[in-house]
Design a protein around this nucleic acid. Structure first.
Length: 511
RNA sequence: GGCCCGUUCGUCUAGGGGUUAGGACGCAUCCCUUUCACGGAUGAAACACGGGUUCGAUUCCCGUACGGGCUACCA
């Protein structure tokens, strides 16, 4: 039997990073098994529907390279429609079938009535012990039920859970899990608005779409008992998918699972892409916009709750597909470790080809108004890639490779600038103007010879050149920068440094 | 409260009846480099607790504690 898995998010807003990990694990499993990865949209709650969320989900998957084989959007497939709101009639039909089979019933209790029962009774549960005292087709006379249904009065269809049954699940990650049906409530399957709840839609769709494995978050484990009962009720138990419940992703510090609000709280992204919500409070910065490479996000997420069985840490998508196994998924929740995410990104930037990095830097450079060639961006990439964590660092930390120095490290300049320094720098400028060829190694040799001839020390001169070029004591090798920037620019910056140095000298004398 | 799941360095984790309990991030020190990084080396750092079982438990069993999830006409 072929492997078919689905990622089934709700379009209620931006796709949380935990959801992304679920998608990733489903994708990896499908690809490894030569199976099919399906994107299904679970939009059965009309109240929580957020326009744009579905497009966001699709764009996120595409950015990460987790392209569905079937699903909403333009992914195709012959098991559609893949959006649950487009399948409304199907669920209705199956809900009725379950009623006919005696595994479900009509209930007329209003939400207000139920709320009141919950107020009155601690731990009120709508189930075998209480259903007889409520308003449903199990207790109402037949004709009364028909009358109510025909009158158009609102009703729901509930699952009839028989007591004293054991429900045994063999979870691929957790092993044997058992539930007692007497503790289960009669879940609503079809809501008063005619839409199914997750439970019904999920079972019907997984069955119809021939899903072989359900890989989803741990929050679904308790309701899996109901799902098994539904498969039994429909007579589909033989083809019931296998379950694997993933551990949750926890907050970096403190208690509880990672929430969307934690992004702002801890100053880090918890969504793949930025999301523009109704309010600032509901708007978030994504990994992409922070300057993460998708491969780095994938690698980070893959290892958050799964391990390859050996000491490897760096995996591209193909390697992940190859190494992935459900058995190696951890049981315990994993804290979101942003430092590690940053480390992965740094690693991927370091390892990336310069021209690939250049294509990532391009929009950032354009945004700053830097008019430079692709070749120059590639040069900058090469110079800076071992000193950055995020993509924007290339144009921010390395801004002096695109525009004049804005800030000079004045403490350092003061330390190095003395009475005769201006003259030395002017001579260096001449040297730079005449150096042949204008190339890093020979330039360095020429400057070092100059230093020696003048009876100076490298420490007297090299920091000045660095200051002239970058204004800061950080950055790429001095002569690499000098060559990247070009002879004229270097000479110009030496002039500016003389101005800065002399200014500093005179103000120091004056004070 | 009830039900279910979990618990190895600060974090992600490997391991599994007898190990110097391994790796990675982060942290510290040193080396490289007259910059910053990168890289390299070294170091500090963990089996939640109590009972069993056993010659021997971090590993198996049972409790306890702690953490998490669910407990909606939300997913």
């Amino acid at each position: 039997m072929s492997v078919r898995v689905r990622f089934a998010p709700s379009p209620t807003g931006a796709l949380h990073i935990g959801g992304v990990r679920t998608a990733l694990y489903n994708y990896l499993f499908a690809k490894q098994q030569g199976g099919t990865f399906i994107l299904r949209i679970e939009d059965t709650d009309q109240n929580r529907y957020v326009p744009g969320a579905e497009a966001y989900i699709i764009e996120s998957l595409k950015w990460l390279g987790l392209t569905p084989d079937e699903g909403v959007g333009d992914f195709g497939g012959t098991f559609g429609p893949y959006r649950q709101s487009d399948r409304k009639d199907i669920y209705h039909k199956y809900a009725l079938e379950l009623v006919e089979r005696g595994h479900a019933y009509y209930a007329f209790d209003t939400p207000e009535e139920l709320e009141q029962r919950r107020q009155e009774t601690d731990n009120f549960t709508y189930h075998f012990a209480t259903r007889n005292g409520l308003s449903n087709s199990l207790v109402l006379p037949q004709d009364e039920v028909h009358a109510r249904l025909n009158s158009g009065a609102p009703y729901v269809i509930r699952l009839k859970v028989e007591p004293d049954q054991e429900i045994h699940i063999r979870d691929l990650i957790r092993g044997d899990v058992r539930f007692q049906s007497s503790e289960l409530d009669d879940k609503v399957l079809l809501k008063a608005d005619g839409m199914p709840t997750y439970h019904l839609a999920n079972i019907v769709d997984d069955h119809l779409m021939q899903i072989s494995h359900v890989i989803r978050g741990e929050e679904w484990l308790p309701s899996t008992a109901h799902h098994v009962l539904l498969y039994r009720g429909f007579g589909w138990e033989d083809t019931m998918p296998q379950f694997a419940h993933l551990p949750l992703i926890l907050k970096p510090v403190g208690n509880g699972k990672l929430s969307k609000r934690d992004g702002a709280k801890f100053g880090m992204p918890v969504f793949p892409l930025s999301w523009e919500g109704e309010t600032a409070d509901d708007s978030f910065t994504g990994f992409r916009e922070t300057g993460f490479l998708p491969e780095a996000v994938l690698n980070f997420l893959a290892l958050l709750g799964w391990h390859p069985g050996d000491d490897r840490e760096l995996f591209n998508l193909d390697e992940l597909i190859d190494a992935f196994s459900v058995e190696h998924i951890s049981k315990g929740g994993a804290r979101f470790d942003y430092e590690k995410a940053k480390w992965f990104n740094q690693k991927y930037i370091q390892a990336a080809e310069n021209d690939i990095l250049a294509s990532h830097i391009r929009p950032l450079a354009d945004e700053k108004g830097y008019r430079v060639s692709d070749a120059y961006l590639a040069t900058v990439a090469g110079l800076m890639k071992e000193r950055v964590t995020f993509l924007p660092d290339f144009v921010e930390k390395g801004y002096y490779l695109f525009e004049p120095v804005l800030d000079y490290d004045l403490d350092m300049l003061q330390k190095k600038w003395q009475d005769g320094t201006a003259q030395v720098v002017r001579e260096l400028k001449t040297l730079v103007a005449e150096a042949m060829p204008y190339e890093s190694a020979s330039l360095e040799q020429a400057v070092k010879t100059f230093i020696q001839e003048k009876g100076l020390k490298p420490g007297d001169v090299l920091p000045l050149l660095r200051l002239a070029l970058a204004g800061t004591m950080q950055g790429p090798a001095v002569f690499d920068m000098a060559v990247a920037l070009g002879r004229d620019e270097f000479a110009g910056r030496l002039d500016l440094l003389v101005q800065q140095g002399e200014k500093l000298l005179s103000s120091a004398v004056g004070s």
